[in-house]
């Protein structure tokens, strides 16, 4: 799947999970850029993305992501 396609789909997941319709993410977006994105909601995001794409991340992937771009790479690799 194309990066831009994945980005727009996970943007919707971010909006829903973080309960904020104004969130607009790009590949460089980091947790520190979004107020609602803390270590707890991060877990919710992981679970929601796994369910949506019907994939499973490894625990090291989850810990190593620095930004949205790396998340997208993980999704693409599945």
């Amino acid at each position: 799947m194309e990066k831009t396609q994945i980005l727009s789909e996970i943007n919707e997941i971010f909006k829903d999970v973080l309960d904020n319709d104004e969130i607009l993410i790009n590949e460089a977006t980091k947790a520190s850029d979004i107020d609602e994105w803390d270590s707890l909601s991060h877990i919710q995001l992981v679970v929601a993305i796994e369910k949506y794409f019907k994939i499973k991340f490894s625990s090291s992937e989850i810990r190593e992501w620095k930004d949205v771009g790396e998340m997208i790479k993980s999704i693409q690799s599945k």
Binding site: I43, V47, S59, R63
Partner: peptide
């Protein structure tokens, strides 16, 4: 139980 989440966050109940 999601063992991955358990090892990262120490939470034992899945969402």
């Amino acid at each position: 139980f999601d063992s991955k989440i358990y090892y990262i966050t120490d939470m034992v109940l899945s969402l």
